[in-house]
C-alpha cells in the first residue's frame, strides 16, 4: 500500500469518526436557547460556589487571611468557564480550528 493510499484511508476513517461524533451531538442541538443558557449558568454558578467554599475552608483550616477565598473564587470561575466552553463545544458552538 502506497503512502497516499494510507493517508486516504486515515482521512476517511477520521471523517467517519467526525460524522459519528456530530450525529451523537445532534439531539443536544435541539435544546432551546433558554435551556442551554440555564444549564450553562447552573454549571458556572456551581463551580464558583464550590471553588469559593473550598477556598474558605482552606482559610479556616490554615488561618490564612482570605488568600484561599480569592484563589478559590478565581479557580472556581476558571472551572465554570471551562465547563461552559465544553458544553457549548458539545452543542457545536465551539471555535472552528480547521
Amino acid at each position: 500500500m502506497t503512502n497516499s493510499q494510507k493517508i486516504k484511508e486515515k482521512k476517511s476513517a477520521i471523517e467517519q469518526k467526525i460524522k459519528k461524533e456530530m450525529k451523537a451531538a445532534q439531539p443536544l442541538k435541539d435544546l432551546s436557547f433558554g435551556a442551554t443558557a440555564f444549564r450553562a449558568s447552573t454549571d458556572m454558578l456551581s463551580c464558583i460556589i464550590v471553588g469559593t467554599l473550598l477556598g474558605y475552608f482552606f482559610d479556616c483550616h490554615f488561618v490564612t487571611p482570605h488568600y484561599g477565598l480569592i484563589i478559590g473564587f478565581i479557580l472556581g470561575s476558571a472551572a465554570g468557564l471551562l465547563n461552559v466552553y465544553r458544553r457549548l463545544c458539545r452543542l457545536g458552538y465551539g471555535f472552528n480550528r480547521h
Binding site: 464550590v50 479557580l75 465547563n83
Partner: peptide
Amino acid sequence: ISFLSRPIS
C-alpha cells in the same frame, strides 16, 4: 473543582 461541582449543578 469542576468535578466537585457536579452534584451541585
